[in-house]
C-alpha cells in the first residue's frame, strides 16, 4: 500500500473515530497507522464534524433548563480559576473591581453575532428570562443617587454624556456617567414617560466598538408612574471598555435579542 493510500485509509478511519463508528478491526488499523504514519492528525476533521452538528442544531437547540443553569453557576464556577482569582482579590490593572453589586447577565447581542452560530432563539429567550430575573432580583443595597455621586467622586476615568430624546421623546433629558475602570455607570432621566412593564420596557444598548460591532445589551428597566426623574444603574453583562454611545429603545417586556429599532427613545454619544 502506498504512503498516499495509507494516509487516505488513515483519514477515513479517523473520520470513523470522530463519528464514533469504528469496529474493533478498524480501531486496530487506526492505531497501527497512527503510529506508523509521520505526524498526527490535526483537529480539523473533528472541528468540521462539530461545526456541521452545531450548524444543524441551531434550528432545534433546546434551552438549558433553569435549574441546570443554576447548578452550573454554583458548581462549575466554584471550580473555575476565575473564581479562585476573584476570591484572591482583583488583579491590579485588570479593570475588574470584584464589585458584588455587578449583575452578570448574558451578552445577547454577542450571542446573536456569533450566530452565524445563531438562531439559538430558545437559549436566547432563556437568557433574557435569566437577565430579567436577575435584574428584578437585584437588591437596592445602595441608593442609586448616592452610588452615582460616589462614582463621580472616585472614578478617575469618568465618562459623562448627555442623553438626547428622539421623536416623541424630545422633551426627555438626562445624562449617563460611566467608568471603564470600575465597570460601573448610571443613567439619569428626566421626563422619560412611565412605562407599563406588562406592555413594554425600556432597554439599554451600549455601543462598544472595541468589543463588538453590535451593541451590548445593557438590560431592561422601567420608569414607574409619577417619577419625573429616575436614576438607573447600568448592569452591563460584559466588560465594556470603550463605550461610544448609549442607546435606549422601547421593546417588548423582557427586552429583545435584536432590536428592530422601531422605537428609539434616546441617544447619548460624544458630540
Amino acid at each position: 500500500m502506498s504512503e498516499l493510500s495509507e494516509w487516505d485509509r488513515f483519514e477515513e478511519l479517523e473520520a470513523g473515530r470522530i463519528l464514533g463508528d469504528l469496529d474493533d478491526l478498524e480501531l486496530r488499523k487506526w492505531k497501527e497507522l497512527s503510529k506508523s504514519l509521520e505526524g498526527s492528525p490535526d483537529l480539523s476533521m473533528e472541528l468540521a464534524a462539530a461545526a456541521v452538528e452545531t450548524d444543524f442544531l441551531q434550528e432545534k437547540e433546546e434551552a438549558l433548563p433553569d435549574f441546570l443553569q443554576q447548578r452550573l453557576l454554583k458548581e462549575v464556577l466554584a471550580q473555575s480559576p476565575a473564581v479562585a482569582q476573584s476570591k484572591a482579590g482583583p488583579k491590579a490593572g485588570s479593570g475588574q473591581t470584584g464589585n458584588a453589586e455587578i449583575i452578570i447577565r448574558p451578552a445577547l447581542w454577542q450571542r446573536v453575532l456569533g450566530a452565524k452560530e445563531t438562531a439559538w432563539a430558545i437559549a436566547a429567550a432563556l437568557a433574557i428570562l435569566f437577565a430579567v430575573t436577575q435584574f428584578s432580583k437585584q437588591p437596592n443595597k445602595v441608593n442609586p443617587e448616592v452610588a452615582k455621586q460616589q462614582l463621580e467622586g472616585s472614578a478617575s476615568d469618568l465618562l459623562k454624556l448627555d442623553f438626547a430624546g428622539l421623536g416623541d421623546y424630545k422633551t426627555l433629558s438626562g445624562e449617563v456617567v460611566w467608568s471603564d475602570e470600575k465597570q460601573e455607570g448610571y443613567m439619569v432621566f428626566s421626563n422619560l414617560p412611565a412605562n407599563d412593564p406588562t406592555a413594554n420596557q425600556y432597554q439599554l444598548w451600549i455601543v462598544d466598538p472595541t468589543r463588538d460591532e453590535k451593541p451590548v445589551d445593557g438590560g431592561v428597566f422601567d420608569i414607574p408612574a409619577g417619577q419625573s426623574t429616575a436614576i438607573i444603574p447600568i448592569r452591563n453583562p460584559l466588560v465594556v471598555t470603550n463605550p461610544q454611545a448609549f442607546v435606549i429603545t422601547l421593546e417588548q417586556p423582557g427586552g429583545v435579542v435584536v432590536s428592530k429599532q422601531e422605537v428609539v427613545v434616546a441617544l447619548a454619544k460624544p458630540s
Binding site: 443553569q69 451578552a107 456569533g114 437559549a123
Partner: peptide, 13 residues
C-alpha cells in the same frame, strides 16, 4: 468571572 457566567448563558443551550 462574569465571562464564565455569560459563557454558560450563551452556550449552555
Amino acid at each position: 468571572e462574569r465571562a464564565m457566567e455569560t459563557c454558560i448563558s450563551q452556550y449552555g443551550g
